[in-house]
Computed example of a mutant assay.
Amino acid sequence: MYLSAKQTVLLGQIMQTLAEPHEEQEIRELVGDLVMQLLGAQFYASFVWQPEQLRFGKALQINMDSENLRSYERYYQFNDPITPHMQRFQVAVRATDVLAHEELVKTEFFNDFLQKDGLYWGVNLYAWHQGRNLGDMRIWRDRRRDNFSDDELRLLDMLQPAFVTALARAQSGHDVQALKLNTLAERLTPREQDIARLVMLGRSDKEISRELQIASTTVRTHLENTFRKVGVGNRSTLIHKLRT
């Protein structure tokens, strides 16, 4: 796979952004803009699947009409001949991989929704984590461009693990802070409390290191200090002692 100098720089910027502690929506928007540039695309949208309502929500867009996107949320997502099939893929997938383009252009979805913004060739990437869809990237080109190549799909696939990790980290951060500890936690520093909460959520030292962006040896030091202050010798006893 050949990358231009510009693509190499953009790829580095994407990986750096995914490693930084952004909010979930910021990740989808910041990375979406960079990925759009990386692939030479002009349009971008991103949603999060809401399994309770069986619909996509939390929409954001770049270079698309906001009202048109709202029409997708209200109507077209329920009359969408491609996205339900694309969502099943664990890798980057083109619209033409699930429906021939000559068939897509005959649909209401294409003529009354996609064409309003000039969307012609599309590729989607979904962030799946433990059976849950954390968000997606929907990247489109207009009809003057070519369809996305196999190499471009592989490029997106290279980004997917970091994209999933970043979204999972951002979303679990809210869960972590919501997890209440009992009064024994008053003996711990704020950082030790954060690590204790992550232990209670079943995170390994390596996962805690990645989520808090600290070295694994630092995690272990904080954890040993936590064990000593709470008076326990292992993770399971710590969890039991700190539950409210």
Rank of each mutant, 00 (worst) to 15 (best):
D205P: 03
K180I: 12
R144P: 02
K116V: 15
Y126T: 01
H101N: 10
R88H: 07
D157R: 01
A100I: 06
E186K: 12
G202E: 09
D150T: 12
A127V: 00
N182P: 09
A178P: 03
D80I: 03
G122W: 02
A168R: 10
T96F: 05
H174E: 14
T189L: 04
Q115H: 08
D136F: 03
L181V: 07
L125E: 02
M158R: 11
T165A: 14
L114K: 04
A166T: 00
H129W: 02
D97V: 01
Q193R: 15
R203T: 06
E152L: 04
E186M: 11
K206N: 09
R210S: 11
A92V: 00
A100E: 13
V176H: 07
E102C: 05
W140L: 05
S149M: 05
Y76E: 09
M137P: 01
A127P: 01
L181P: 08
R197F: 07
D97F: 03
G173W: 03
V123G: 02
Q115E: 13
P81G: 08
E192Y: 13
L156Q: 05
E103L: 13
T96Y: 08
R154L: 14
V164C: 03
L201T: 09
D142T: 12
Q87R: 14
V93K: 00
Q160S: 07
R94G: 03
E186Y: 12
P84G: 10
D80F: 05
L155Y: 09
G118H: 02
P161Y: 10
L159F: 08
Q115T: 11
D205A: 13
L104D: 08
